[in-house]
Nucleic acid binder design. Structure first.
Lengths: 148, 148
DNA sequence: TTTAATGCAAAAGATTTGCAACATG
DNA sequence: CATGTTGCAAATCTTTTGCATTAAA
């Protein structure tokens, strides 16, 4: 389930290029933390990344992992799954619906779409398991944030 | 942006029915916490719900809000946006892709689909703001969890 | 009256921050 | 060598838990 080496190498050099462009130092820790995410196929969280990097860099600290992760996210080198630095939000609307989320302020609005509710999913998906619901999240910059 | 009253009332009576069926006590706190989510149009988090309920029930405590929220979630009376009781996960795959997520164990697998990448979104969406990316999350029970 | 639910306070967990020591460019 | 980065420890913030008290059925 790991990413293949040629792809990992491609990601590593992109990472190094972006860091140089931004004037960020290419430390041993940063390289190894990024490499870990670049080759992982399972979307690890900060703690898991920390444990894995520690096998190769025993002195790395958890706070460096966090700092690096957010730095990579700000540079657009990694993405986060689910909410970004946000708490769990609750919703009592049980009808099938989807969300528009502002990438900057987190504003979230419901929308419905019969078309989306009936999209055909790739057959390969069923090899992962069965399917209950399909939820579409549309991200963008909301009007309010665009004005500033 | 609040939910209209008739719909709130419908949700309230559904909530009461389910609680009775499950033998759960209909306390003042539970009613007001549920009402708050039922009428909110903005997907509040636990802290926000707590602050709003406190205006009407000044003695309510934050831990009761948390306990009630998870109870409602377990009963299927509310849903959570984003990850459920999970930490932020990271991903270095920047290509457009979607996720299959197991509702039980959180297993997450990437998948790609040209069809999904080209779905037509409702025009009304553009009234919220501009659109960067569309991400589809398919939820279900993975094979591993289904076997148990 | 019986039992479950609440509020409090304390614990646990996750993430962030200040700062001196250190490594990179 | 100058500056940005690290590791440590402590702080902060969010969520959970134990337990005596209270309220629903």
């Amino acid at each position: 389930m790991k990413t293949e080496m040629p792809e990992v190498d491609r990601r590593m050099s992109h990472f190094e290029t972006v860091c140089r462009e931004e004037g960020l130092k290419l430390t041993h820790q940063r390289r190894e933390i990024f490499r870990e995410i670049a080759q992982a196929g399972d979307h690890p969280d900060a703690e898991v990344i920390y444990q894995r990097v520690r096998e190769r860099v025993p002195t790395v600290s958890l706070d460096t992992v966090y700092r690096t992760l957010w730095m990579l996210n700000d540079l657009g080198l990694v993405k986060t799954l689910g909410s970004v630095r946000e708490r769990t939000r609750f919703d009592a609307n049980l009808e099938s619906h989807h969300h528009y989320v502002c990438r900057k302020c987190g504003l979230t609005r419901d929308f419905v779409s019969d078309e989306l509710d009936n999209i055909e999913l790739p057959a390969s998906l069923y090899s992962f398991g069965d399917i209950d619901v399909t939820h579409v999240e549309v991200r963008g910059l909301c009007r309010e944030c665009a004005r500033k």
